[in-house]
Amino acid sequence: MQFLLLIYDAEANFSNMSPEEVGAMYQEYGKFTQEITAAGKHRAGGQLKPISSASTVRVRNGKRVVTDGPFAETKEQLGGYYLVEAADLDDAIAMAGKIPSARTGSIEVRPLWVREARADSAKG
């Protein structure tokens, strides 16, 4: 199964870190990425620029509307993701628990639809 591991953390935490701390964190992320790559579980991943760089697009009545934002008042923001291959939820949870930001923020674990699962759910 494929799972998207969505990394949420307070951007403020990040901007308050010293250069040494930022370096240490990147190193830790690098190690984690290497680990899951070596295990053949890494499919994709990346770090997002701060939420201030985001734009939101909607099409309403055939008209495209672009706004700055989102401005949802949340403590934690989506800051990055991994797309991983995992045997099952427990395997994905084990990986999520090793992401450095899990200690300060939180990781949302979301399975992706796969063809077989879609057939299963159509049946049920």
Partner: peptide, 18 residues
């Protein structure tokens, strides 16, 4: 039951660690 199926909750005894 739907969540067990869709979220990939495994049908097994957890690892020693968990």
């Amino acid at each position: 039951k739907r969540k067990i199926r869709e979220a990939g909750i495994p049908y097994r005894v957890p690892s020693e660690e968990d």
